[in-house]
């Protein structure tokens, strides 16, 4: 569960987020959509205090992050996973080490870590690539590593900042499928920021539309299902042709 009360963020005169109130219940997949500069990424980054708000309160998993001391905040962040558009993996660490490092931060003993890393890699289907370096992987595979890393500490919340925006449609479907599985199997609350309507509509239960740093509206939707994200360029071509015929007639 995430709640934002009257949260604002200003970057050197630019009001990125203006007094936002938003509550996201446990186990919801919540989409945030809006044009570039609407403040959706900033809003997401406020949810784990990657950006410190100028005003307001951020409460995640019952903990008021905005009033926690440094140590407690770090602990709270371990139950808030995050993935990024550009993955942000450590390129000098193997797939295995990238996942392992997040467990090391929590001080887990080695034997337990080994088991947990392999569980996470199996979940995203990368156990065979555990000794590869990120430079040897495709974009989709890198995002899977990032997801495994974010999941390692069994978070209650997963923040996703444009996770599919640098991936092709097929890979996008794969990643969205994993996110949906995480939500279904582990009850993880997912906040999904994207500018792609298709992506938001496919798996989100509720959607917040942002404009000019404020919330324009929050609506419940029925997820359309991942299959509705068109992956095959031929579909696109067919649609174009249909459009063309309609015009002819």
């Amino acid at each position: 569960m995430i709640s934002l009360h009257n949260v604002s963020k200003n970057f050197a005169g630019f009001q990125a987020v203006r007094s936002v109130n938003l509550t996201i219940p446990q186990s919801e997949i919540h989409g945030i959509i809006g044009a570039s500069g609407a403040g959706k990424s900033t809003l997401l980054r406020l949810m784990n205090l990657l950006e410190l708000p100028d005003t307001g309160e951020v409460v995640v998993n019952g903990q008021p992050l905005t009033s926690l001391k440094e140590r407690k905040l770090r602990q709270a962040r371990m139950s808030i996973g995050m993935i990024f558009q550009q993955f942000h993996l450590v390129l000098n660490k193997t797939v295995y080490e990238n996942v392992d490092v997040s467990l090391k931060l929590g001080g887990m003993p080695k034997a337990q870590r080994q088991k947990r890393v392999m569980e996470c890699l199996q979940f995203v289907g990368l156990e065979n690539l555990k000794d590869k370096y990120p430079a040897q992987l495709s974009g989709g595979q890198k995002q899977r590593v990032a997801i495994a890393r974010a999941l390692a500490n069994k978070p209650q919340v997963l923040l996703c900042d444009e996770p599919t925006s640098s991936l092709d449609p097929d890979t996008t479907i794969g990643i969205l499928g994993i996110l949906e599985d995480i939500n279904k199997n582990f009850g993880v609350t997912i906040v999904l920021v994207s500018h792609e309507m298709d992506v938001i509509q496919s798996i989100c239960h509720r959607v917040t539309v942002m404009a000019d740093g404020g919330i324009y509206d929050t609506v419940s939707i029925k997820p359309k299902g991942i299959s509705k994200v068109s992956s095959d360029p031929r579909n696109f071509f067919e649609q174009l042709k249909k459009g063309g015929e309609a015009d002819d007639a």
Partner: peptide
Amino acid sequence: VPRGVVEAAISMGASGKDIIFKFLYVEARS
């Protein structure tokens, strides 16, 4: 070292010491 790597470390709950030894020095080692 790309800023994003540090941000990912912070989001994982890394302390300053962790960020330096487990992320920055690893990525900048060459």
